[in-house]
Simulated scan of single mutants.
Amino acid sequence: MDPSQYIAPILGIVAAAAITFYAVSFQQMSQKSFEDAGLENFDRPQLRSTMSAKERRKLKQVRKEKKGSSEEI
């Protein structure tokens, strides 16, 4: 085989290794930054809206009742 035929596969392997190295490095850096920030459980963030649906319904009901009672007076 001609030595020039080996260049493409070798470059592909080197490129894959470089991409893998950088991906793992960035993952470790982000994990370390989360640990430094005190966010140990960063895999499952606890997102919470300002009000739950139940709280919004209750507030809406209270406003509706308040509006109804003020119109009756």
Rank of each mutant, 00 (worst) to 15 (best):
Y6E: 07
A18E: 11
Q5G: 01
I10F: 03
S49K: 13
G12H: 03
I7Y: 04
D43F: 06
L47I: 15
A16S: 15
A23Q: 02
A37T: 12
P3Y: 00
L47R: 09
P9G: 07
T50I: 08
D36A: 14
M51L: 13
G12D: 04
A15M: 08
I10Q: 04
G12T: 04
Q31S: 14
E35W: 13
V24T: 11
F34A: 08
S30I: 10
Q27C: 06
M29F: 09
G38Y: 03
P9V: 00
A37N: 11
I19N: 00
Y6K: 15
I13N: 11
L39N: 14
V24K: 07
G12P: 00
Q5S: 12
E35Y: 06
K32A: 14
L11K: 13
T50W: 06
A37I: 05
G38T: 08
D36C: 07
L11R: 15
M51G: 03
A17H: 01
Q5W: 06
Y6R: 06
M29G: 07
M29K: 15
F21Q: 00
T20A: 11
T50V: 09
Q27T: 09
L11I: 04
R44K: 11
Q46G: 07
A15G: 09
A23K: 00
E40D: 15
F34D: 11
A8M: 09
D43R: 02
Y6T: 08
S25N: 05
L39T: 09
A17D: 06
I7A: 01
F34K: 00
P9R: 09
Q28L: 04
Y6N: 10
T20W: 02
S4M: 13
L11M: 04
V14I: 09
P9F: 06
L11D: 01
Q28Y: 05
L39I: 15
F21Y: 12
P9D: 02
D36Y: 12
I19S: 10
G12C: 01
A8R: 15
S30Q: 12
Y6V: 08
Q27P: 04
G12V: 02
T20D: 02
G12E: 08
Q27S: 10
S4Y: 04
P9E: 02
I19V: 13
D36W: 12
L39F: 13
M51Q: 05
V14F: 07
L11P: 01
S49M: 06
I19R: 00
Y22T: 08
Q5K: 08
A17S: 13
F21W: 02
G38F: 03
M29I: 13
V14G: 02
F34E: 15
L11Y: 02
I10E: 08
P9Y: 01
F26P: 02
P3V: 14
P45H: 02
T50R: 11
S30A: 10
T50A: 03
I10C: 05
L39Q: 05
M51T: 12
D43S: 05
V14R: 12
K32E: 13
Y6G: 03
L11A: 10
N41D: 15
Q27A: 11
F26W: 14
G38A: 11
I13Y: 11
